[in-house]
Amino acid sequence: MRIAFLVAPEGVEQVELTAPWEAVTETGDIPVLVSTEPGRIQAFDHLDKADAFPVDAVVGDVTARDFGALVLPGGVANPDSLRMNDAAVAFVKEFFEQGLPVAAICHAPWTLVEADVLRGRTLTSWPSLRTDIRNAGGTHVDEPVRICDAGPNVLITSRKPDDLPEFCNAFVTEFAKTGVTAS
């Protein structure tokens, strides 16, 4: 199964990209780096530049149907940039409309807020997103990982890099349950 990893050209928290990427690779699934621009994305270690990674696909050139699931890594600047890009927001929303699983960590739910897909959903995130999630119709909980199936798809969320082992285990397990493959 091909798994989309949606990130902005700059600002993704590197470990929130690389740890889930490795978890997907270990399952035999294929991670695909999708961004709003071609070329390379610049990852960060909190506020310091880290490594750059090649973009595999531009968000306007792919659809949710090209993938079996979506991973949204965090970093403060990453989801803030994505939520300002109409094509990125539409891409995220399409996963929910297609009933495909989505995993988001740390600040990544900001993009979910913008996509208006959190009504009636329970999720966790970095604590500063609590009010945004509530205002978007969701329920925020403070847990390492939350799996919510109270909607058209399974939503797996996590709070921070310290939760990555639980997050990766949860989303890999949930993605495997779907049996969905990209068309």
Rank of each mutant, 00 (worst) to 15 (best):
residue 13 E to G: 02
residue 87 A to M: 10
residue 170 A to M: 11
residue 114 E to N: 11
residue 10 E to G: 05
residue 141 V to D: 07
residue 182 A to G: 15
residue 56 D to C: 14
residue 95 F to D: 03
residue 90 A to C: 12
residue 72 L to P: 12
residue 170 A to I: 07
residue 49 K to P: 06
residue 170 A to R: 02
residue 23 A to M: 12
residue 105 I to V: 12
residue 82 L to M: 12
residue 51 D to G: 00
residue 11 G to Y: 12
residue 142 D to M: 03
residue 106 C to A: 05
residue 147 I to S: 03
residue 57 A to L: 09
residue 161 P to N: 10
residue 138 G to N: 10
residue 181 T to V: 15
residue 61 D to L: 03
residue 152 P to N: 13
residue 141 V to L: 05
residue 127 P to D: 01
residue 4 A to E: 04
residue 89 V to N: 05
residue 49 K to R: 15
residue 137 G to H: 02
residue 96 F to Q: 08
residue 75 G to C: 08
residue 135 N to R: 15
residue 157 T to K: 08
residue 52 A to R: 08
residue 81 S to A: 14
residue 166 E to M: 02
residue 49 K to Y: 03
residue 23 A to L: 09
residue 80 D to V: 08
residue 161 P to F: 02
residue 135 N to Y: 07
residue 101 P to C: 01
residue 172 V to E: 11
residue 169 N to T: 15
residue 16 E to R: 12
residue 160 K to S: 08
residue 64 A to Q: 09
residue 92 V to P: 00
residue 146 R to H: 07
residue 27 T to K: 12
residue 108 A to M: 11
residue 178 T to A: 03
residue 87 A to V: 10
residue 136 A to H: 12
residue 70 L to Y: 09
residue 55 V to P: 00
residue 12 V to P: 01
residue 3 I to H: 09
residue 20 P to T: 14
residue 141 V to F: 12
residue 37 E to V: 01
residue 182 A to K: 05
residue 102 V to H: 13
residue 81 S to Y: 08
residue 7 V to Y: 14
residue 119 R to H: 11
residue 176 A to M: 04
residue 14 Q to Y: 04
residue 87 A to Q: 15
residue 116 D to P: 00
residue 89 V to T: 12
residue 2 R to F: 14
residue 29 D to V: 03
residue 121 R to M: 14
residue 123 L to I: 12
residue 41 I to D: 13
residue 145 V to K: 04
residue 36 T to K: 01
residue 52 A to K: 12
residue 120 G to V: 07
residue 143 E to C: 10
residue 143 E to G: 03
residue 45 D to G: 05
residue 132 D to T: 03
residue 173 T to M: 11
residue 31 P to A: 00
residue 94 E to K: 13
residue 18 T to N: 05
residue 30 I to E: 03
residue 167 F to V: 10
residue 110 W to Q: 15
residue 22 E to S: 11
residue 72 L to E: 13
residue 164 L to F: 02
residue 69 A to S: 06
residue 31 P to S: 00
residue 110 W to H: 13
residue 123 L to G: 06
residue 159 R to P: 12
residue 140 H to Y: 15
residue 117 V to R: 07
residue 27 T to M: 10
residue 73 P to C: 00
residue 47 L to T: 15
residue 161 P to W: 13
residue 107 H to M: 07
residue 49 K to I: 00
residue 91 F to Y: 13
residue 49 K to N: 04
residue 134 R to G: 02
residue 42 Q to Y: 01
residue 7 V to W: 15
residue 1 M to R: 09
residue 151 G to V: 06
residue 53 F to Y: 15
residue 18 T to Y: 10
residue 54 P to L: 15
residue 69 A to T: 00
residue 95 F to T: 08
residue 182 A to L: 06
residue 103 A to P: 00
residue 132 D to S: 04
residue 15 V to R: 14
residue 72 L to K: 14
residue 78 N to V: 06
residue 110 W to D: 03
residue 122 T to N: 00
residue 118 L to V: 07
residue 154 V to W: 06
residue 58 V to Y: 01
residue 3 I to Y: 04
residue 9 P to V: 14
residue 89 V to Y: 05
residue 174 E to R: 07
